[in-house]
């Protein structure tokens, strides 16, 4: 069963069509990546998923049930704009949010202690949130999103501002909650993490899904068109020499990467290099990085530029 299922979901703000009628299925029990440039409509989609906005049309269902019939205990949320009650004590804050998600006060207390221990902040339970560093506050924010063991946790840019050690910690915690059966929807701009963490993705641009599927499939599909070349004497090469063969050319003194046009062929690139008198030492079809795919798909569908924040 799909954890989340969107059918014709749309949202307008005045004349701005933030999300155009959109269909999307998010499978259960994995990390699903929600990608897209700024202003693409990701946050609006997330806010509709969290019940903050009501869609203007279409249906969102959660494990087959209409969204508005699902109790808020099923959801956890780490918004991009982070915020906590800074004057509250850490433990109280966690218990407050747990009670909003339907936990009894005894259970809320247990979960708070347990969660703080998991992220190494057990000594801070009786400190004010204000006393915590930014990274520590982000850990608290993560606990707020997952401590009640939601069925669906939506994490918007959870890694920004974290040091590498804490990025590792966050990833471990994500693994643990997935093992417990939580479905994670991850919105991020960091494509290496998408490659590492996400099983499937949807790329949203201008309020529409422009690419969706398994990460491995997508990379393979795009990979056949990516070529990596190593050579000894490429200093005189120019991008324009490959304009008819490649959509994108990255030239470095001793290597180059090409994204071959769909109608062209990787062999033609090799032929052109040889014609230009380059001594090729290595030539291989590379698996495309999510970064390249992102850039390619978004520029092909046209970026919205600086869209509005909603």
């Amino acid at each position: 069963m799909e954890a989340l299922s969107y059918r014709g979901v749309q949202k307008n703000f005045g004349d701005v069509k933030a999300v155009k009628p959109l269909d999307l299925d998010i499978p259960q029990g994995k990390i699903f990546g929600l990608l897209g440039p700024n202003g693409a409509g990701k946050s609006t989609l997330i806010r509709m998923t969290m019940g903050i906005f009501l869609p203007d049309g279409g249906d969102i269902s959660v494990f087959g049930q209409p969204r508005d019939q699902v109790a808020s205990a099923a959801f956890g949320y780490l918004p991009e704009d982070r915020g906590l009650y800074t004057k509250m004590k850490v433990g109280e804050l966690l218990r407050f949010f747990a009670s909003l998600r339907g936990l009894s006060s005894a259970e809320a207390g247990r979960r708070a202690t347990e969660g703080l221990r998991r992220v190494g902040l057990e000594k801070w339970e009786n400190h004010k949130v204000d006393d915590l560093s930014k990274g520590m506050q982000q850990k608290i924010q993560l606990l707020v999103a997952i401590q009640h063991r939601p069925k669906i946790a939506v994490l918007d840019e959870p890694f920004t501002g974290l040091d590498p050690v804490n990025v590792e910690l966050f990833m471990e915690v994500l693994d643990e909650i997935i093992a417990q059966g939580t479905t994670v929807v991850l919105s991020t701009h960091q494509m290496e993490q998408v490659e590492k963490l996400c099983h499937a993705i949807a790329l949203i641009n201008k309020g529409q899904v422009v690419l969706k599927g398994n990460v491995a499939d997508i990379r393979r599909d795009y990979g056949s068109r990516a070529v990596s070349v190593a050579f000894a004497d490429g200093a005189k090469l120019q991008e324009s020499q490959f304009a008819d063969l490649a959509e994108k050319v990255i030239l470095m003194p001793n290597e180059a990467r090409f994204v071959v046009r769909p109608e062209a062929h990787a062999g033609k690139v090799l032929k052109r290099l040889l014609e230009l008198g380059v001594k090729v030492s290595r030539f291989e079809e590379a698996q495309a990085s999510m970064h390249d795919i992102f850039v390619q798909v978004v520029s092909a569908s046209g970026a919205e530029g600086d869209g509005h924040a909603n």
Binding site: M50, P79, G83, R101, V144
Partner: peptide
């Protein structure tokens, strides 16, 4: 304060 500290978005997702 809730609005400016952005805490409101998490709360509104539950309440």
């Amino acid at each position: 304060e809730e609005k400016n500290s952005k805490v409101v978005e998490v709360i509104i997702s539950a309440v």
